[in-house]
Design a protein around this nucleic acid. Structure first.
Length: 639
RNA sequence: GCCCACGUGGCUCAGUGGUAGAGCACUUCCUUGGUAAGGAAGGGGUCACCGGUUCAAUCCCGGUCGUGGGCUCCA
């Protein structure tokens, strides 16, 4: 518990609560707020409902139904979490506790990490505090006073924060016995946090500095009602169910060997999907004037010295020796592409030169960040380098945006978020070229009607870029496609082309990946579809299931006919019950199951079951194959 | 890389200081069955690896490797 001195309220004369201001004759916002409001925006400033709006002020109320309101709600929940932790573990010093996507966390400095039992206790305590409907009370006090209080309480982290961030007057909040440095606003009382769940704990560092103070972070979430919480928890379950590592195991798509951490072993089923995916991409690239190349996996160190990787990327690279020469394993495909460009005399007539490469890149990632197919040490980039003039950038980017949309829509990803990142502090290239490139990107974005977010100063040192984030079936976003302008490569590799006047000029390079890493895209697609791959990609498209031994011959004949038409068919003629085989196919998410028994043989029709749908419908073989062919040809998203 | 947890048959996981179990999967036999698991029998594990403590280690301790979650979305 807090020592008594710390508990004492700051003396009255030091406190300026809004209600004590002269204009306090007016009524607090709360009295006119809708029931679900958690805070208000008065003239653009977020405030507590206990505050009073000045005459004629513009007032808007925030509810958890909107992002800003939910933010306040979760922020208050974080305070509640810290309050519970301080009740139960008085020695835990509290750090920071912001709301995050889907919840909030709070960091504590403790000797011992929190166990699962601790988390359960904390959740229980939080719920007790909710029942008490404790008010969130704002207190404004002088900086020195706040520092004194936190120092008395032994909260050295808070002292540090107040010293760093506090103005002359410092805003703090009290909820029950818990007192925290915080700008607010907050919900009126803990009672509104009706549904909460403590999720997990893990390690973090004070201010994110791995050399700094280790902290124990507790993740939790909260909602204004239990239904929403239940829905969220169901979604978490669903995410687990769709985990590409689980499905990869179940459907025998890929392996990751202990002997080769961070690298993927593609099994036949997964390899087939990847191959079909890449063939499909190749078709698109052909039509858009790309020329595919393949460059060496390992290149002499001199190349990496020239490209700058040796200076800036060394710790992420693998090196090998051959003879007395040192070689670097490529972490990116750019130098190879640059050498292809340089291998011939280029003229302005050759531009834009679009060189694509499905290049296998190796990057030494720290062991702690590896994860399934999403964070690996070896991956295939669906890369391309477009060599063009600065004035061609816009047209190329427009074409790329079109390609990105086309590719992602084909898999049912309709929600693409676009980010434009501009020149960072440290960068190469002239002011004029940056300006031209940035405006080319911006114009392309505008013309393609893409709503985008601006990330000023977040571009690469060699040029501005556009990143794409896709939203999957569970509402999670993933960074995939990227378009980057590069002013550095042409210089580093002395690339040039002949202008109409016969002069030599440096081309601008556009790097771009559409799928990003093929491995990561595969993971995304697996989780997005829950393993129910669209028919054109599915490892097995049809499971042919004979009912009894006497139907095996007809089933084999049918399977043969389907295979002759190019379909991928599994003939399940094991001596098992039909229901068992149906289940087998359903679990593997085979798009179609065709059951063959006496009835089918007599009628000549097929009984076709579609995955995920109970029962079967009769269909003529011709209809069925026509339907299959159509699904494949159109690359239908479902089934 | 750092912190925490975990590593037991192909998979999911139980378990104990006295050289190990379940379900699924697999094999064989019986069953010939109408849209998500028929029955029986059987095979399969140096309990991740290396070292230590102990009469005895899968279990306790240390190390290594691997896996998982996390490592600021800034009061």
């Amino acid at each position: 518990m807090f020592r008594s001195g710390a508990l004492r309220r700051p003396r009255k004369q030091n406190v300026t609560t809004p209600s004590e201001k002269p204009q306090a004759a007016a009524v607090p916002l709360r009295s006119t707020a809708p029931r679900t409001a958690v805070a208000a925006v008065v003239d653009g400033r977020e405030v507590d409902l206990s505050e009073v709006a000045p005459e004629g002020a513009e007032v808007r109320f925030l509810t958890p139904a909107e992002p800003d309101g939910l933010h306040v709600f979760r922020h208050s929940s974080a305070h509640l979490l810290a309050a519970a932790v301080k009740d139960l573990y008085p020695h835990a010093r509290y750090g920071v506790g912001p709301p995050i996507t889907d919840g909030y966390y709070y960091d504590f400095e403790t000797a011992e990490p929190f166990s699962a039992e601790d988390l359960a206790r904390i959740e229980k305590r939080m719920k007790q505090l909710v029942k008490q409907r404790l008010p969130f009370q704002r207190e404004i006090l002088p900086k020195e006073e706040a520092i004194r209080i936190f120092r008395e309480q032994g909260e050295r982290l808070k002292v540090e924060l107040v010293e760093e961030k506090g103005g002359e007057q410092v805003s703090c909040y009290r909820v029950g016995q818990f007192f925290d440095f915080c700008e607010g606003p907050h919900v009126p009382h803990t009672g509104v946090i009706r549904a909460l769940k403590v999720l997990s704990s893990s390690n973090a560092y004070w201010k994110g500095d791995a050399r700094g103070i280790p902290m124990q972070r507790i993740y939790a979430t909260s909602f204004p009602d239990r239904k929403q919480l239940a829905r969220h928890l169901r979604r978490l379950e669903e995410a687990k169910r769709r985990d590409h590592r689980r499905i990869g195991r179940l459907q025998r798509l890929f392996l990751i060997l202990e002997e080769a951490p961070g690298q993927v072993v593609w099994l036949p089923a997964g390899m087939g999907i990847v191959n079909r995916l890449l063939e499909w991409m190749r078709g698109k690239l052909d039509r858009r004037g790309y020329q595919e190349i393949r460059t060496p996996l390992i290149l002499n160190e001199s190349v990496w010295a020239r490209s700058g990787h040796l200076d800036h990327y060394r710790e992420n690279m693998y090196f090998v020796e051959g003879g007395d020469q040192g070689y670097g394993v490529k972490p990116m495909n750019c130098p190879g592409a640059a050498m292809v460009f340089r291998s011939d005399v280029r003229s302005f007539r050759d531009l834009p030169l679009r060189l694509s490469e499905f290049g296998l890149c190796h990057r030494f990632e720290p062991s702690g960040v590896l994860s399934g197919l999403t964070r690996v040490r070896a991956f295939t980039q669906d890369d391309a380098h477009i060599y063009c003039r600065l004035d061609q950038v816009k047209a190329e980017v427009l074409d790329l945006m079109d390609l990105v949309a086309e590719v992602y829509e084909a898999f049912g990803f309709s929600d693409l978020q676009v980010e434009l990142s501009t020149r960072p502090g440290k960068s190469v290239g002239t002011d004029e070229s940056w300006e031209a490139a940035e405006s080319a990107l911006l114009e392309a974005l505008t013309e393609s009607d893409a709503t985008h977010v601006l990330n000023p100063g977040d571009g690469a040192f060699y040029g501005p870029k556009i990143d794409f984030h896709v939203r999957d079936a569970l509402g999670r976003t993933h960074q995939c496609a990227t378009i980057q302008v590069d002013f550095s490569q042409a210089e580093a590799f002395d690339l040039s082309y002949a202008t109409p006047e016969g002069a030599r000029e440096r081309p601008v390079v556009i790097h771009r990946a559409i799928l990003g890493s093929v491995e990561r895209f595969f993971a995304l697609l697996t989780e997005h579809t829950g393993g129910a791959f669209p028919t054109w990609l599915a490892p097995i498209q049809v499971a042919v299931i004979p009912i009894a031994d006497r139907h095996r011959e007809a089933a084999a004949a049918l399977a043969g006919r389907l295979r002759d038409q190019g379909f991928r068919v599994d003939l399940d003629d094991r001596r098992e019950k039909m229901g068992y085989k149906i289940r087998h196919a359903e679990v593997r998410r085979v798009p179609f199951m065709v059951v063959l028994g006496d009835r089918e043989i007599a009628s000549g029709a097929l009984s076709v079951r579609t995955r995920g749908r109970k029962g079967a419908r009769p269909r003529s073989e011709a209809d069925f194959t026509a339907r299959l062919a159509e699904l494949v040809a159109s690359q239908a998203v479902s089934p």
